[in-house]
Each structure stands twice: as C-alpha cells, then as structure tokens.
Design a protein around this nucleic acid. Structure first.
Lengths: 116, 116
DNA sequence: AACGTATATACGTTTATGCGTATACGATAG
DNA sequence: CTATCGTATACGCATAAACGTATATACGTT
C-alpha cells in the first residue's frame, strides 16, 4: 500500500507540472518551440508579446523541465524538452474539441426544442 | 492564414481546459473516476476531503466538460468523460518522471564533481 | 573600458484560485 | 409535510499568479 501522504505529494507535483500548461502564452510558446527552437527575441516577435513576459513564462517552463536552453553567442535558444509533451497536448486539444462540439450540438437541440 | 485574435482565443480556451488539471485534488478525483464512477460521498470518503471541497472541484471539472453526471436516486454519480484524458495524463506523468530522474542524476553528478 | 544588444529579474498592483464554515437546495422516507 | 440525507453554493479570507515598468546582468564588439 502506498501511503496517503506520498500520493498527495505526487499529485501535488503533477499538478504543478500541469500548471505550466494552464496559461495561453505558455501554450503558444510551447507550440512555437515544438515547430522549431527559438531564442527569446524570436519568440517576442513571433508572438507579439513583450520580452519580460516571454522571459517570465520561459522561466516557469524551464523550472518544470519542459524546455531547455542552449547558449548561442549572446542569445539563448530554447528547445522543447520532450516530444511527448506535444502528443499530450494534442490529445487534450482533441478532447476539448469534442467537448465543445458536443456542447454546441446540445445548445442547438435546446434551441430547437424551445422553438418547437 | 489564421487571425492572431483567433489563435489567442483558442489558446485561452485550451489553457482554461488545462487549468482543470493543475490542482492535486482534481487530479485525485480524475484518477478515482478513471478507475470507476463515484458519487460525491464516495469521493469524499475515499480521498478524505470534505464534501464542499469535492463539490467545488467537481464543478470546475464539469464546467470544462471533463466529467459528466448521472442522477441516481438521491445521489449523483460522476463519470470521467473521455478516456483520452487518462492517456494524456499518463503521458504527462511519464514526461515528468523522466524530468525528475534527469534532475536527480544531474544533482548527483554535481555533488560528485564538487567532492572530487 | 565603454557601449549595445540579448535576456533575466525585482517591484507593485491587479486578478484569480483555493479553503473552511455556514447555509441552501433537492430528493426520498416516514 | 417534515425530517433527513446527499449535494451545491455563498461568503470572507488567504495565497498565488500574471502583468507592465523599470532595472540588472551577460555577452560581444569596438
């Protein structure tokens, strides 16, 4: 049997890990890096978000080990750490898409019923 | 070309969806429901968390469409909405495990280097 | 050494999130 | 009909997260 405290601690860790994904800017960064590595300036330009904001989000991704950095002269290139991350996000997006579709059809049903 | 505003909106939606996963209690609930459906009282007992807290977290899961409910007499049974959710979480956990392992070995390396 | 470019961080503020207690609502039993 | 059990919500508080501005650090060039 696994102790309750341990289970809670693991869940906390995992929640922390997932919280890296719960911000739209960070998701945009992840998708951008999944395409190819970028440095901070490139991300700043591509996403049209000011540099300190990009850096702050990169830090939270780095702290959780989702991205890693390679110094390249005076700039720093950020890489996505694990391809499975993209797979997981793809799955989540697919689930989300289906949920939204489902709701849309429910809404239509309801409207039709009311109008009937 | 997809408009920037649309991309941002989609990312916001997805971040919102992911934020459902960024709380340890909700993860415990999801894992519990992945095993089998439960009603609120069962979750309360199994996870040893007070009922209003369980209900609140269930609401956020329900709002995002991750779980659905079936009324069963006077109680309400909660079901996990999509098996892919578990798959995605498994992937994320695997990534996290590897990251932690990697860091542990890095820490060991560092220590060895310092002590050398 | 001095300057410019690239990146990171600190600070104060605003907004969001979670918690516990108390309470309301809904369904069933007696 | 009211008492009870199961579930949901409201409220006040405490904590955490995000943002923009300002500033610090690091590297490369001259």
């Amino acid at each position: 049997m696994v102790s309750k405290a341990l289970i809670q601690e693991i869940s906390q860790l995992e929640a922390d890990f997932c919280s890296a994904l719960s911000d739209p800017t960070r998701l945009l960064i992840i998708y951008s890096l999944a395409d190819k590595p970028h440095n901070v300036t490139e991300l700043t330009n591509e996403l049209d978000i000011i540099q300190p904001t990009i850096s702050r989000h990169l830090k939270t991704l780095r702290d959780r080990g989702l991205v890693y950095t390679v110094r390249n002269g005076s700039s720093i290139t950020y890489h996505l750490g694990d391809k499975r991350l993209t797979q997981a996000l793809d799955l989540l997006r697919a689930v989300m898409r289906d949920r939204l579709k489902h709701r849309a059809s429910l809404a239509k049903e309801t409207k039709a019923t009311i109008n009937a």
